[in-house]
């Protein structure tokens, strides 16, 4: 049962390796974005010791990790919307797997492969040049890895909901840009959420976005400790369940449209 999804995940690793041009451009773009943000924060500090409880070193660590993680908390909306637009979806639905799980398995495979080849070297490089910090405790390090995995699954589920919108929308580019902006801003990748004004922090707490980036990286950099840390982990899992249910409901409504069109 699980085996076929594992095989699918593995096949997408091969695919990920098969496009060197995209790999290099992705690496260059990610690297230059990191340099941009690090330069920006360094200029902002300019001799100051603390800003909003952050020192430069931990903020740089936060920025590097959160921007990288933000690259990986999305999923297969592109494939899904293409399947829908081209009508291939009707064939896919007949195949002996759950389409959502298949797309997720493939995306997770690609994500892991890409992390190993992009994020890990970049983190090592940045650690060497900018002296990134280690996780505050061993527990924080372990929980960081766990919450990253949950965040990738959660990001995938949200992305599949976006992809399903192709049943109703033509301009997927716009929707994806919108989603990317929403993510970047509210998951804490651009700026740590505890720098937000209070009302906005409060608003964010009611969305799944902080679970994607702020929770893992906040734990890593010691911004979320003690009881709130466990609560944050629990909330993250809760969002996975909620978004999964939403995805299935939206999907069911959308599929009715397929039958209306006669496939």
């Amino acid at each position: 049962m699980v085996k076929k999804y594992l095989m699918l995940a593995k096949s997408s690793i091969h695919l990920d390796i098969a496009y060197p041009a995209w790999y290099w451009s992705h690496l260059i773009v990610t690297f230059s974005k990191l340099v941009l943000m690090v330069s920006f924060w360094s200029a902002v500090f300019d001799g100051k010791q603390l800003i909003n409880g952050w020192d430069l070193s931990s903020l740089i660590t936060y920025t590097v990790l959160s921007m990288l993680l933000n690259e990986y908390v999305n999923g297969a909306s592109w494939e899904l919307s293409n399947l829908i637009r081209t009508g291939q979806i009707s064939v896919e639905l007949l195949r002996p797997y759950d389409l959502h799980f298949r797309l997720m398995a493939q995306d997770v495979g690609a994500t892991i492969s890409n992390m190993m080849r992009t994020a890990v070297p970049l983190v090592l490089f940045m650690a060497f040049v900018y002296h990134l910090q280690f996780p505050v405790t061993i527990l924080a390090g372990i929980l960081f890895l766990w919450t990253v995995m949950v965040a990738i699954v959660l990001g995938n589920l949200i992305d599949l909901i976006i992809g399903t919108m192709a049943f109703w929308l033509e301009n997927m580019w716009g929707l994806r840009v919108f989603k990317a902006a929403l993510f970047l801003f509210f998951n804490g990748a651009l700026i740590p959420l505890n720098m937000f004004p209070d009302w906005l922090q409060y608003l964010c707490m009611w969305t799944p976005f902080p679970s994607l980036v702020y929770t893992p990286v906040g734990i890593f950099t010691g911004r979320i400790v003690g009881e709130p840390m466990w609560i944050a982990c629990f909330i993250q899992l809760l969002w996975v369940v909620v978004i999964f249910i939403v995805l299935r409901l939206v999907w069911r409504v959308a599929l009715r449209k397929v039958t209306v069109f006669g496939g």
């Binding site: 929308l169 033509e170 301009n171 580019w173 716009g174 929707l175 840009v177 919108f178 902006a181």
Partner: peptide, 8 residues
């Protein structure tokens, strides 16, 4: 789509 594009 037009509205989504501009809003995004």
């Amino acid at each position: 789509d037009f509205i989504i594009g501009i809003l995004s």
